[in-house]
Design a binder for these strands. Structure first.
Length: 508
RNA sequence: GCCGCGUUGGUCAAGGGGUUAAGACGCCUCCCUUUCACGGAGGAAUCACGGGUUCGAUUCCCGUACGUGGUACCA
């Protein structure tokens, strides 16, 4: 049985888009592209209490930045609309009713206080399971424990109620996970999950099954945290649509915090000083801003690359992959089973590699932005390209372009005088005075020429070139850093070079 | 607690009955550069533990430990 590959990413729009979420998108996207399938984005907004303004648009922005644009989505549309679960509310009811009619689900009227009381009671009794399940449900207020007439009366009175799946013990649910292989669960351990909430909205459990069916999803990739509820979903598939229509499952390993243990969270990023979200996220309620990979200076190419390699590799030594290469080489069965601790140092290495490999044209808009943020404007494009090619090897994050090249645009704000003074004397002063004059009166100003004049004068004055070069560098750059000094001099030009020499001469 | 999933250097990881157990990040040393990077050459560092199976287990099986996820009218 082969059918068209259709995958989906189904985020809940409740805040920033987490690293792990983007990786899930990526694996979905890669699988779809690899197999000529469709990638759909479905918004799982069934919890109205968790609605966050702007969160949905933010997700679209992140996906666009990453270059992982869906084929079908709430904004783009597609053959199976709507793509927001809140707008599909009416659809789910018929399936819930079908389950009830077949005795596979039931009404439950327990209040949250009663549920809490049940757990307390079970705990007090030393029970191993505090669940609403085959052991406890007959002690609760539901259509299984109540006489039919009473249930009907409650329903007629409009008593708030939920619909729960009825899971009986004694059955083994088996399935093959694309990453973990054959898995099986005993239904005796599953609880009677709520399928439809009191407000009439489906829970994730019902919605995911109904929507995956209706949207003809062929492969369902999601985080490992869903594994324990997989048997419930499979049961639902069995009851509602038959196992033949069910997508193939793949439960992705978690991304863990670098130190200690546990799932990586936004808090860890704040604490350890690195982003966890793809892009800046401003919480509309608290006004709190959380930094994103984009804004601290990551290239989307690098971000995608690092995420792909967090839990997957192609079996060779290659580590730097473009999206196209990933599409070509990605395979779900090479995804790891175990979680991976996030390492920000390695993440930066990926970005550094991508900056080194990117053309000046690719980098120019980003570099320009970072320079402008530091009040360097009116940059000529040709010059900018030259600067980028000159310094990109030493830039890890985009903002590094400012620190690595500001002296090619403006005079140093300060000078590392401490490195000059010990070696400073009248002979050196005389040398640089003469050097400035020599430059000023010479006709050309090429690297070769500068170097030649610089060294010739040193020979004439009988001073070691090395010492002079260091001082010259500090005059032009302000500190002991940057590309070759003569190259810098040529870049900034004769006037400016002379000006900078004389400026330092005046303060020493 | 119960249920599930996992475990190769500090981190990402290749490998999968017999190997000197790859490679990368980070760290250290040296070379290059009279700067800082880049680049190059080296170095330290790993199969969680205990039982099996086997001529032989890092690799297969079973336990244990540890980690992690779930145990919501959240996804």
């Amino acid at each position: 049985m082969t059918r068209k590959v259709r995958v989906r990413f189904a985020p809940s729009p409740t805040g920033g888009l987490h690293l792990g979420g983007v990786r899930t998108v990526l694996y979905n996207y890669l699988y779809a592209r690899r197999h000529g399938g469709d990638f759909v984005l479905r918004i799982e907004d069934t919890d109205q209490t968790r609605f966050v303004e702007g969160a949905e648009a933010y997700i679209f922005n992140c996906l666009d930045w990453c270059g992982l644009t869906p084929d079908e989505s709430p904004v783009k549309g597609g053959p199976f609309p709507p793509y927001r679960q809140s707008e599909r509310k009416a659809l789910y009811r018929e399936y819930a009713d079908k389950l009830i009619k077949n005795g596979q689900a039931y009404y439950a009227f327990d209040t949250s206080a009663e549920l809490e009381a049940m757990r307390e009671k079970l705990k007090a009794a030393g029970s191993h399971s505090l669940q609403y399940d085959h052991r406890s449900r007959m002690n609760m207020k539901n259509s299984l424990s109540l006489p039919a007439e009473e249930t009907q009366k409650l329903l007629d009175d409009g008593t708030p109620h939920v619909i729960r799946i009825k899971i009986n013990p004694g059955e083994t649910i088996s399935f093959t996970d694309l990453i973990r292989g054959d898995l099986s669960f005993d239904t005796g351990n599953s609880d009677d999950k709520v399928l439809v909430k009191a407000d009439g909205m489906p829970t994730y459990h019902l919605a995911v099954v109904v929507d995956d069916y209706l949207m003809q999803i062929s492969h369902a990739f999601r985080g490992e945290e869903w594994l324990p509820s997989a048997p419930v979903h499979i049961l639902l598939w069995k009851y509602l649509f038959g196992l033949d229509a069910m997508p193939q499952w793949a439960h992705l390993p978690l991304i863990l915090k670098p130190d200690g243990n546990g799932k990586l969270s936004k808090r860890d990023g704040d604490r350890l000083g690195f982003p966890v979200y793809a892009m800046d996220w401003k919480d509309p309620n608290s006004g709190e801003l959380t930094k994103g990979f984009k804004e601290i200076g990551f290239l989307p190419e690098a971000f995608i690359n690092l995420l792909a390699l967090l839990g997957w590799n192609d079996g060779t030594e290659q580590e730097v992959f473009s999206l196209e290469e990933l599409v070509d080489k990605f395979s779900i069965d090479r995804v790891h089973k175990g979680g991976a601790k996030f390492d920000f140092e390695k993440a930066k290495w990926f970005n550094h590699e991508w900056i080194k490999r990117s053309s000046a044209a690719r980098l120019a808009p980003l570099v320009k932005e970072t320079l402008e943020a530091n009040n360097i404007s009116n940059i000529e494009e040709d010059y900018l390209y030259k600067v980028i090619d000159l310094v990109k090897d030493r830039c890890t994050l985009v903002p590094d372009f400012y620190t690595q090249s500001s002296f090619l645009f403006e005079r140093p704000a300060s000078y590392d005088e401490a490195s000059i003074k010990p070696k400073w004397d009248d002979a050196k002063r005389d040398y640089f005075k003469t050097l400035a004059d020599t430059f000023r009166s010479s006709t050309g100003f090429s690297v070769e020429q500068i170097e030649q004049q610089f060294k010739q004068l040193a020979t004439e004055k009988n001073i070691k070139v090395g010492e002079l070069q260091m001082i010259f560098r500090i005059m032009l750059v302000g500190s002991k850093m940057g590309p070759g000094v003569f190259v810098i001099a040529e870049m900034i030009g004769k006037e400016e070079t002379v000006g900078r020499i004389e400026k330092v001469l005046s303060i020493l």
